[in-house]
Write a protein that binds this DNA or RNA. Structure first.
Length: 231
DNA sequence: GTCCGGTTTA
DNA sequence: TAAACTGGAC
């Protein structure tokens, strides 16, 4: 099956989807965190993990005063692992946090402001070089911690856009990202809200077992499909 | 393709 | 009791 994204009004389709979701959910104020550093730590902790469990891990880090670059640099990895245990994959994530903090300290002296001064394509490449940081984690940090206009793709984005037949199921991360980046204005606040809306939509309606009742996208037509054709 | 994993949700 | 959870490395 061909996925025709060449039509000139694909931008209008993406904006239509945004408007529908924004009207339904309103301003979601993502990413939920006290500061950019907490966003970065949360981005690693939330890898394949429910956010409610990440909140517990972040709470225990705060409670013990460990949620600073200096503290995380010096804390023993095993101690860190126990603190973040509720987030799951805790041995793995302790190692990943350590790798990221080392990078953050070496390159930006542990200052988010210095990181924010980096050109985002450069920053993204550097982040992808850190062990434990893949495309979604890197882009979450670039967008939500550094306020740079980069569209974040996740499993929810894939699910929703595949089901509505805008993209093949296993479309590569960068290709799917390009679908948004090539057709939408590069605005950080807009991208933040769009991704947040996608996550909410997937949690409420576009679950693994779909609940299309009441979904703002229920009446959405695939861009290439003639109106009225039943799937 | 497999492994990492405690916790919540259905 | 099983599925799912704001992935990434090997």
């Amino acid at each position: 099956m061909e996925f025709d994204r060449s039509r000139t009004d694909f931008r209008e389709v993406l904006l239509d989807i945004y408007d529908r979701l924004d009207a339904h959910f309103g301003d979601l104020h993502w990413w939920p965190a006290d500061d950019p550093f907490e966003v970065m730590v949360g981005a690693i902790l939330t890898q394949n993990t429910a956010w409610t469990n990440v909140e517990k891990a972040l709470a225990s880090l705060k409670k013990t005063g460990a949620l600073t670059p200096e503290a995380l640099l010096n804390i023993p990895e095993e101690t860190l692992a126990e603190l973040i245990r509720p987030a799951g994959y805790y041995h793995l994530k302790a190692a990943r946090l350590k790798a990221f903090i080392q990078f953050f300290t070496d390159n930006y002296s542990g200052h988010v402001e210095k990181m924010q001064q980096e050109e985002w394509p450069v920053l993204r490449t550097k982040l992808l070089g850190v062990w434990g940081v893949g495309p979604e984690t890197a882009d979450s940090i670039v967008l939500y911690a550094c306020e740079k206009p980069l569209f974040v793709i996740d499993a929810y984005t894939r699910r929703i856009f595949f089901r509505h037949q805008f993209a093949p199921e296993k479309m590569h991360y960068d290709a799917l990202q390009g679908l948004f980046m090539d057709h939408l204005p590069h605005d950080a606040s807009f991208f933040k809200q769009y991704h947040a809306l996608i996550v909410n939509t997937a949690k409420h309606f576009c679950r693994k077992a779909p609940r299309c009742d009441g979904c703002p996208l229920k009446s959405l037509k695939p861009p290439y499909e003639p109106a009225g054709v039943k799937q």
